[in-house]
C-alpha cells in the first residue's frame, strides 16, 4: 500500500511539474509567428545601438525619438512645432526585399549606395545591412536637404555594428569583432547575410575618416581589410 502511495505521489508530482512547465515557462515565444519573417530577435541589432548615431539637431531644431524596437529606431526632426522629417535606421535582416532597390543604384554617399524613393524619401544602405532613411514631412524637403541629413548620420560607427564584416579580419581576431555586442552572449555570429556585392564599399570606406572620435572603433576593424 505504502508503495502504491509513493508511486501515486511521484506521478502526481511529475504531472504537476509538466503542467507547471507548460503554464509558466515562456513556451509561447518558441512558437512560429513571433517575429517578422520568423527571424530570431537575436539576429537583429537592437534599436538602442542606433540612437546615438542619429545626427544632432541644429539650433532651432529638435530631435524626438518616437519608436525603438529590435532592429529599428526612428526619430522625428522638428522645427518649432512642425515635423520636418522622419529619420530612421533599420536592420534589413528582417526585410531582405528592401535591399533589392540598391542593386542598380549608381549614386553613392560616403561610398554607400543611395536611392531616392518617390519624391520625399531617400535611403542609404550601410554595410549591406543597415538602411538609413530620411522621409520629408509636411512641406517636404528637396533631395539635397535629405542627402545632407543622411550624411549627418554617424555612418562609420553604424557600419561597425555589422558582424558580417568580421570575415575581412585576420582569423585570430574574428571572434572579437565589435558588433558582436549585437548578439546575445555566448552566441557566435552565425547568421551570415547573403552578400551580393562583396567587393563592396568597406574597402572604399576607409578614406572617409572625417568623423574623429566615435568612429575610432570602426576604423580599427576596417584597417586590416585595406
Amino acid at each position: 500500500m505504502s508503495r502504491n502511495l509513493r508511486w501515486g505521489i511521484g506521478l502526481l508530482l511529475l504531472a504537476g511539474l509538466i503542467l507547471g512547465a507548460f503554464l509558466f515557462l515562456p513556451f509561447r515565444s518558441w512558437l512560429p509567428g513571433g517575429s517578422v519573417g520568423n527571424i530570431p530577435n537575436r539576429a537583429l541589432v537592437n534599436g538602442t545601438n542606433f540612437n546615438r548615431l542619429f545626427p544632432s539637431p541644429e539650433a532651432g531644431e529638435q530631435l524626438v525619438f518616437t519608436q525603438e524596437k529590435r532592429g529599428f529606431s526612428q526619430a522625428r526632426l522638428k522645427r518649432g512645432s512642425d515635423v520636418v522629417a522622419l529619420l530612421s535606421i533599420s536592420d534589413v535582416t528582417s526585410s531582405p526585399a528592401s535591399r533589392n532597390k540598391f542593386i542598380h543604384s549608381q549614386e553613392r554617399l560616403r561610398s554607400w549606395p543611395l536611392v531616392d524613393q518617390g519624391s520625399q524619401a531617400s535611403a542609404l544602405l550601410v554595410a549591406d545591412r543597415f538602411q538609413v532613411k530620411v522621409i520629408g514631412q509636411g512641406n517636404g524637403m528637396d533631395s539635397q536637404q535629405r542627402h545632407a541629413l543622411l550624411e549627418a548620420f554617424d555612418v562609420a560607427s553604424l557600419a561597425a555594428l555589422n558582424p558580417a564584416i568580421a570575415p575581412a579580419i585576420p582569423a585570430g581576431r574574428e571572434a572579437r569583432a565589435p558588433g558582436r555586442e549585437a548578439l546575445a552572449p555566448g552566441r557566435a555570429p552565425g547568421l551570415r547575410l547573403p552578400r551580393f556585392n562583396r567587393e563592396a564599399p568597406q574597402a572604399k570606406a576607409l578614406p572617409n575618416r572625417s568623423r574623429p572620435s566615435l568612429s575610432n572603433r570602426a576604423n580599427a576593424v576596417l584597417e586590416p581589410a585595406a
Binding site: G37, G118, S119, Q120
Partner: peptide, 26 residues
C-alpha cells in the same frame, strides 16, 4: 506619410505593415 502616392510604393508599405502587424513581438 511617404509624401508620394506611387501605387507600387504604397503597396510595398502596406505589405510590410501587414507583416509587422502579424508578428507577436512587435
Amino acid at each position: 506619410v511617404l509624401g508620394s502616392d506611387d501605387p507600387e510604393l504604397v503597396a510595398q508599405v502596406r505589405s510590410r505593415a501587414d507583416a509587422l502587424n502579424l508578428s507577436r513581438h512587435e
